[in-house]
Nucleic acid binder design. Structure first.
Length: 419
DNA sequence: TCTGGGGTCCTAGGACCC
DNA sequence: TCTGGGGTCCTAGGACCC
């Protein structure tokens, strides 16, 4: 049996842990640049604030209903996530951290009643010890566990946030209740197509013919159907090295000069290089993209990207910055107002398996330089040492007007309590 | 004025090989 | 008049997830 543990309204809940005065009040968390809503407390959801709502369009509503607004504080959320995951890991070794706020746990050989009881205990313990409320869905497959979790959350009062789909009766009841677009793996496009042929519920979906699914949709939908029938098709994915790494940002204002965009792109490349070194990979190619603000009809639009094949695999910030700059030169055009750019590195080789080429290779001196750079930044704080071509005057500033303290990771920002 | 960021997997079609 | 068959690899784009 699988248990899917999901933190409720995770980012909003993280903010509340250190602001208990906000319990019962509407809370939203914004994306980078305070752009749009990425997390909402139940009270905020009830006010009709949709996911991904642009913050500026809802400013009035926030004011009117005294919604507490936070800028994204990923340092805090990452640390809180670690605390939750550490507790979950005490229950089983067979464990997949699916996202920052979700994990699949594999429990073998439990009786159903025992597992339900164990998960109820886990639910209470995590909520009490970390302050983050969680919901748990239990079932034979990951997809059914997702559905069970949805039910646990939707009917929290009745389920006490833990729900098991075990018997055939429960499975069919759940699937007949679950709308097809609520199935894990069926998104907007697919559900539209399915609804057009009168497939409304997850149960309807399981009645479709395998051959038809494979031919008209894809092999994934065949697996999905199996999963909903209770036949395991998706296994736990143990922690693996990433296959692509990206750093992309929307700018706080429009950039028109090559040098401004260049500084950003070099910084993104250096950030990708750092992430590569953390997982001990080198990349063989990188993609650079730039674009204007597509929301603005009155702007001349331009977006372009380029894939740069590297002459050798590397994770040196210096080399990746050079390749990124060369790539940018090929796609940058004067006369546009740039609003967003990004660097994505792909095609990895483990760093200790990089082949030596005859003529051109990564500069071996960079290995020690990068080790030193990472070590200094780890002990003295991010970006203490950076490339000279990276924002030496600190021009770049992300908008974060409502940033909460880093309560758990910075001693100067630790919570103080008045007795 | 203002609209996020980071991933995975699958498929179709083209290029290329013998 | 008539123009094969089978395979691999790569890439772009789409769809999905949080």
């Amino acid at each position: 049996m699988y248990a899917l543990v999901d933190c409720n309204n995770f980012y909003a809940s993280c903010e509340r842990v250190f602001r208990p005065d906000l319990n019962g009040k509407p809370v939203v968390v914004l994306s980078n640049n305070d752009g749009c809503v990425v997390a909402r407390s139940n009270e905020a959801k009830e006010l009709g604030i949709p996911m991904a709502a642009p913050a500026f369009k809802y400013a009035e509503l926030f004011e009117q209903h005294k919604v507490h607004v936070f800028s994204a504080n990923f340092t805090l959320y990452g640390d809180m996530s670690q605390r939750v995951m550490n507790l979950l890991a005490e229950y089983t070794d067979d464990f997949e951290m699916y996202s920052i706020d979700e994990a699949f746990l594999n429990f073998e050989g439990y009786k159903q009643a025992d597992l339900q009881a164990l998960c109820e205990e886990m639910q209470q313990k995590v909520t009490k010890w970390t302050g983050i409320p969680i919901s748990i869905g239990i079932a034979r497959t990951k997809t059914l566990a997702k559905a069970a979790n949805y039910i646990a959350k939707k009917f929290a009062a009745r389920t006490k946030s833990v729900y098991t789909i075990d018997t055939e009766e429960q499975r069919i009841k759940a699937l007949k209740w679950l709308k097809v677009d609520g199935v894990w793996g069926i998104g907007r496009r697919l559900s539209k197509r399915l609804q057009a042929i009168n497939i409304q519920t997850a149960y309807d979906f399981t009645q479709l013919d395998d051959e038809w699914l494979q031919k008209k949709l894809s092999i994934v939908s065949v697996h999905l159907k199996q999963e909903l029938l209770g036949v395991e098709s998706f296994r736990l994915i143990r922690e693996t090295a990433k296959k692509s790494i990206a750093t992309t940002r929307t700018f706080e204002k429009n950039y028109t000069e090559f040098d401004q965009v260049k500084e950003r792109v070099i910084t993104f490349a250096a950030s990708c290089a750092e992430k590569l070194r953390r997982q001990k990979s080198c990349c063989n190619a990188m993609m650079i993209f730039i674009r204007t603000n597509f929301h603005r009809a009155d702007h001349e639009q331009y977006n372009n990207s380029i894939v740069v094949k590297l002459p050798f695999a590397t994770n040196s910030s210096i080399e990746l910055a050079q390749f990124a700059e060369a790539g940018l030169k090929k796609i940058f055009k004067e006369g546009y107002k740039y609003k967003k750019a990004g660097v994505v590195v792909v095609d990895f080789t483990p760093q200790d398996e990089v082949e030596q080429h005859l003529f051109e290779n990564s500069n071996p001196k960079h290995v020690a330089a990068m080790q030193a750079l990472d070590k200094i930044n780890a002990s003295l704080g991010k970006n203490n040492v950076k490339l000279a071509s990276q924002d030496p005057k600190k021009v770049w500033k992300m908008r974060q007007e409502k940033l909460s303290p880093r309560y758990t990771t910075n001693i100067d920002e630790i919570i103080t309590i008045q007795v």
